[in-house]
Structures are given as structure tokens and as C-alpha cells.
Lab assay of single mutants.
Amino acid sequence: SELMNSSKLIRMLEEDGWRLVRVTGSAHHFKHPKKPGLVTVPHPKKDLPIGTVKSIQKSAGL
């Protein structure tokens, strides 16, 4: 199965306009000026399962 580095996923979010608002432990929480909701990324993780990545991307509207 495909894995993604959390840094790469965070870069994709930031390029889309998401900004880090809070860190709780290894959970990084992002908000967007125009899009609704809060997106949480486990970080640092070298090997996020593709299912997790897809669900984060979906929440972020990517």
C-alpha cells in the first residue's frame, strides 16, 4: 500500500492556503481562511497510510 510523508501532505495543505493554528502532541491542526472546518494531520510521520491521506485531503477539499 502507498504511504505518504506527513511533511509532504502539510506542504500540499499550505499551498492550498491552510495555516497551522494549533499543535496538540503530534496532532497539527490547520484552518483555512475561506474553507470550513479544521483539518488535523499527525506529524511528524514518515508513513501515513494512503487512506488517512485521502481522508485528510477530502476534509481539506483538495
Rank of each mutant, 00 (worst) to 15 (best):
S1D: 15
S1C: 14
S1H: 13
E2P: 09
E2N: 10
E2V: 07
E2Y: 08
E2D: 12
E2G: 10
L3D: 10
L3Q: 13
L3E: 11
L3F: 11
L3M: 11
M4H: 08
M4I: 08
M4S: 10
N5G: 13
N5P: 15
N5H: 11
N5E: 13
N5C: 15
N5V: 09
S6G: 04
S6P: 03
S6Q: 02
S6E: 01
S6H: 03
S6M: 03
S6K: 02
S6R: 03
S7Y: 15
S7P: 04
S7C: 13
S7M: 13
S7G: 11
S7A: 14
K8H: 14
K8D: 15
K8A: 14
K8T: 15
K8I: 14
K8W: 14
K8F: 15
K8V: 15
K8P: 03
L9A: 04
L9V: 08
L9T: 02
L9M: 09
L9R: 01
L9D: 01
L9S: 01
L9W: 03
L9E: 01
L9N: 01
L9H: 01
I10C: 04
I10K: 02
I10A: 02
I10R: 02
I10F: 03
I10Q: 02
I10V: 05
I10M: 06
R11F: 08
R11W: 10
R11K: 12
R11G: 09
R11Y: 09
R11M: 11
R11P: 02
M12T: 07
M12E: 07
M12K: 06
M12A: 08
M12L: 11
M12W: 07
M12D: 06
L13K: 00
L13N: 00
L13S: 00
L13G: 00
L13I: 08
E14Q: 10
E14C: 09
E14P: 00
E14I: 11
E15S: 08
E15M: 12
E15V: 08
E15I: 09
E15H: 10
D16H: 07
D16L: 05
D16Y: 06
D16C: 05
D16R: 04
D16P: 00
D16V: 06
D16I: 06
D16Q: 05
G17T: 01
G17C: 06
G17R: 03
W18S: 00
W18F: 02
W18T: 00
W18M: 00
W18P: 00
W18R: 00
R19T: 11
R19A: 08
R19S: 09
R19C: 10
R19M: 12
L20D: 01
L20E: 04
L20V: 09
L20N: 04
L20M: 07
L20I: 07
V21Y: 14
V21D: 06
V21A: 09
V21P: 00
V21Q: 07
V21K: 05
V21M: 09
R22N: 08
R22I: 08
R22D: 07
R22E: 09
R22S: 10
R22M: 11
R22G: 09
R22H: 10
V23R: 14
V23F: 06
V23E: 08
V23M: 10
V23Y: 07
V23W: 09
V23C: 08
T24R: 12
T24Y: 11
T24N: 12
T24G: 10
T24L: 10
T24H: 11
G25P: 15
G25C: 11
G25F: 14
G25Y: 14
G25I: 15
G25S: 12
G25H: 15
G25L: 14
G25M: 14
G25A: 14
S26R: 13
S26I: 14
S26Y: 12
S26G: 11
S26V: 12
S26T: 11
A27Q: 14
A27V: 09
A27N: 12
A27W: 13
A27C: 13
A27K: 10
A27D: 13
A27L: 15
H28N: 09
H28I: 06
H28F: 07
H28Q: 07
H29P: 00
H29Y: 12
H29E: 15
H29M: 15
H29K: 10
H29A: 10
H29T: 14
H29V: 14
H29Q: 14
F30Y: 09
F30T: 00
F30G: 00
F30R: 00
F30W: 02
F30H: 01
F30E: 00
F30S: 00
F30L: 05
K31I: 13
K31T: 13
K31L: 11
K31Q: 12
K31D: 09
K31C: 10
H32F: 01
H32S: 02
H32V: 00
H32A: 00
H32E: 00
H32C: 02
P33S: 08
P33N: 08
P33W: 09
P33R: 09
P33A: 09
K34Y: 14
K35S: 03
K35P: 00
K35E: 02
K35V: 03
K35C: 03
K35T: 03
P36F: 09
P36N: 08
P36D: 08
P36W: 07
P36A: 09
P36I: 08
P36H: 09
P36L: 08
P36G: 08
G37I: 03
G37D: 05
G37Y: 04
G37K: 05
G37L: 04
G37S: 05
L38K: 07
L38S: 08
L38V: 13
L38A: 07
L38G: 06
V39A: 04
V39I: 11
V39K: 01
V39F: 01
T40C: 12
T40Q: 09
T40N: 06
T40K: 12
T40M: 13
T40W: 15
T40E: 11
V41Y: 01
V41R: 01
V41T: 02
V41P: 00
V41F: 03
P42W: 03
P42C: 05
P42E: 07
P42G: 03
P42R: 04
P42T: 05
P42M: 06
H43K: 02
H43Y: 04
H43R: 03
H43S: 03
H43M: 03
H43T: 03
H43C: 03
H43V: 02
P44Q: 04
P44K: 03
P44D: 03
P44I: 04
P44T: 05
P44H: 04
P44V: 04
P44N: 04
K45L: 07
K45Y: 08
K45M: 11
K45D: 08
K45W: 07
K45N: 12
K46D: 15
K46G: 10
K46M: 13
K46Y: 13
K46V: 13
K46R: 07
K46W: 10
K46L: 15
K46H: 10
D47N: 14
D47C: 14
D47L: 11
D47G: 08
D47F: 15
D47R: 10
D47M: 11
D47E: 13
L48T: 03
L48Q: 01
L48M: 07
L48G: 01
L48E: 02
L48P: 01
L48V: 07
P49H: 06
P49S: 14
P49N: 08
P49E: 07
P49W: 05
P49I: 03
P49M: 05
I50T: 12
I50E: 15
I50D: 15
I50C: 11
I50N: 09
I50Q: 10
I50R: 08
I50S: 12
I50M: 11
G51K: 13
G51Y: 09
G51E: 15
G51H: 13
T52E: 08
T52M: 15
T52A: 07
T52S: 06
V53E: 02
V53W: 07
V53K: 02
V53F: 04
V53H: 02
V53S: 04
V53Q: 05
V53A: 05
K54P: 02
K54R: 14
K54T: 08
K54H: 08
K54V: 11
K54L: 08
S55H: 14
S55Q: 13
S55I: 08
S55D: 13
S55V: 07
S55C: 12
S55Y: 09
S55P: 02
S55E: 14
S55T: 08
I56G: 01
I56A: 02
I56E: 02
I56H: 01
Q57L: 15
Q57M: 15
Q57D: 02
Q57Y: 15
Q57P: 01
Q57F: 15
Q57R: 10
K58E: 15
K58H: 13
K58L: 14
K58N: 11
S59Q: 15
S59R: 13
S59F: 07
S59K: 15
S59Y: 07
A60C: 03
A60P: 02
A60E: 02
A60Q: 01
A60N: 02
G61E: 05
G61L: 04
G61F: 04
L62D: 03
L62C: 05
L62N: 03
L62Q: 04
L62G: 04
L62K: 03
L62I: 13
L62F: 04
